[in-house]
Amino acid sequence: MTSSRTSLIPLSILSGPCSWSQERRRHALLIGTASPEETWGDVADIPAPSPFRNRHATGCLCCSRAPVVMILAQVFQERVTGRRPFFQEVAVLTAPQEMSSLRQQLENDVLIRARYQLIS
């Protein structure tokens, strides 16, 4: 799935079992834990928050960036350099009560906005 108006990578936030077709999942990267019956093109775990979060100066990248934001930056770089299988879109699996907060974090991160297009 690509957009004709932009070269940004489509990014969806999911809160439960995915209804995407097998074909669509095969070309996508899932960030989170896949259920046993789902097959994805690639899967990346969400890292634990930094133990130093909020201990450093204001604006420190390890203190101010959420784990999902950090993994999205990492997988983008790995995609570009060929260290990760090519993916056409990304799905982030999160708890329903965290969806709004995660969307806000992603919308407010300039690097994420430069690389990914949040899909409703």
Results as ranks from 00 to 15, higher is better:
71 I>F: 01
113 R>C: 08
96 P>A: 04
30 L>C: 00
118 L>Y: 03
30 L>T: 03
106 L>P: 11
85 P>S: 08
94 T>M: 05
51 P>L: 07
105 Q>P: 09
86 F>G: 03
3 S>Q: 01
116 Y>H: 04
37 E>A: 10
120 S>P: 15
77 Q>H: 12
47 P>C: 00
44 A>Q: 10
118 L>I: 02
24 R>T: 09
18 C>N: 13
78 E>C: 09
112 I>D: 08
94 T>C: 15
25 R>F: 10
81 T>K: 11
89 E>N: 01
48 A>C: 13
97 Q>C: 12
102 L>M: 07
120 S>L: 01
14 L>Y: 04
44 A>M: 14
108 N>W: 04
103 R>G: 11
43 V>N: 08
103 R>P: 00
69 V>Y: 13
17 P>N: 12
105 Q>C: 14
42 D>P: 04
60 C>P: 14
64 S>T: 15
17 P>Y: 08
71 I>C: 10
9 I>C: 04
75 V>D: 06
53 R>E: 15
119 I>T: 10
62 C>N: 06
5 R>Q: 11
100 S>T: 15
95 A>H: 06
77 Q>Y: 13
12 S>T: 12
47 P>V: 05
45 D>I: 03
110 V>E: 09
3 S>M: 10
71 I>H: 05
103 R>F: 12
73 A>K: 11
120 S>F: 02
34 A>M: 07
8 L>N: 01
106 L>D: 01
112 I>Q: 09
108 N>Q: 14
82 G>D: 04
104 Q>Y: 06
69 V>E: 02
65 R>D: 11
2 T>G: 12
118 L>F: 13
93 L>N: 09
68 V>G: 05
8 L>H: 10
87 F>G: 04
1 M>P: 15
111 L>P: 00
2 T>E: 12
75 V>N: 06
114 A>C: 05
94 T>P: 07
64 S>H: 08
6 T>L: 11
98 E>G: 10
93 L>E: 02
50 S>Y: 03
29 L>N: 04
18 C>M: 02
98 E>Y: 09
60 C>R: 00
17 P>S: 15
11 L>T: 14
70 M>P: 02
44 A>F: 02
1 M>F: 02
94 T>K: 06
120 S>T: 07
8 L>G: 09
25 R>W: 14
47 P>E: 07
10 P>Q: 08
61 L>C: 08
17 P>R: 01
82 G>N: 00
59 G>N: 05
9 I>L: 12
74 Q>V: 03
74 Q>T: 15
61 L>D: 15
76 F>W: 01
16 G>F: 14
33 T>K: 11
37 E>Q: 02
55 R>T: 09
102 L>G: 05
39 T>A: 13
48 A>Y: 07
31 I>Y: 05
8 L>T: 11
46 I>P: 12
47 P>S: 04
68 V>M: 05
3 S>H: 03
39 T>P: 02
2 T>F: 13
97 Q>Y: 10
57 A>E: 10
33 T>L: 13
33 T>V: 15
91 A>E: 02
72 L>N: 06
13 I>Q: 02
85 P>F: 00
89 E>Y: 04
70 M>E: 08
68 V>D: 05
82 G>T: 15
